[in-house]
């Protein structure tokens, strides 16, 4: 079943949950072939019911020890701009749409999402443009995000410290 996984990390982002479960957004998702919507809502006040959407099956939870399995099963990840969530989705090799909370003041978390967007690793929108973005998005433009190379760090340190 083609699945969308929505995650807000450790924060709350009711506006995203509201937008993504709106009848317009779910209709677009349905049209694009998605059938299942999994929502991680964190500390938010909205925890939608299983039958809250006419177009898709909905599952919602607040927190889990690990969302790795939800990431793995997803065909599309919609996330807040948090660095941890972005890196986890890209690390799992999933197409990622980041929804920026424009009600929050600019914080350093946005730096990474913005850069990853400029480098074509993710798509980027706000709640008010979510439906429009879902309608027009072209996931094929996204570039894979290569994993980091800690070995380069280790080699550098070995040489610098004179480790044999």
């Amino acid at each position: 079943m083609k699945t969308v996984f929505v995650t807000v990390g450790s924060t709350r982002f009711d506006e995203l949950i509201e937008s993504v479960t709106s009848s317009e957004a779910t209709q677009v998702l349905k049209f694009r072939g998605y059938e299942r919507l999994v929502l991680q809502v964190g500390k938010g006040s909205l925890l939608p019911d299983a039958d809250s959407c006419a177009h898709l099956s909905v599952e919602a939870f607040r927190f889990k020890d690990s969302i790795a399995e939800d990431m793995k099963q997803a065909d599309l990840v919609i996330s807040h701009a948090g660095a941890g969530s972005c890196l986890e989705a890209l690390g799992a090799g999933k197409p990622l749409l980041v929804v920026v909370n424009d009600k929050l003041m600019d914080n350093h978390q946005l730096e990474l999402a913005r850069q990853l967007h400029m480098d074509h690793h993710l798509l980027y929108c706000t709640c008010s443009t979510l439906t429009e973005t879902l309608k027009n998005m072209d996931l094929s433009v996204l570039q894979p995000f290569p994993p980091g190379q800690p070995k380069n760090f280790a080699n550098f340190l070995d040489k610098a410290l004179g480790v044999k």
Partner: peptide, 27 residues
């Protein structure tokens, strides 16, 4: 040149720990 390096590793929370553990794995 030395054969052993004693490391003091400062782990933070969340993302910091994930990152530092990836570095530790490479050593």
């Amino acid at each position: 040149t030395r054969s052993h390096v004693a490391v003091l590793v400062v782990a933070g929370s969340g993302g910091h720990t994930t990152e530092i553990m990836r570095l530790m794995e490479s050593l």
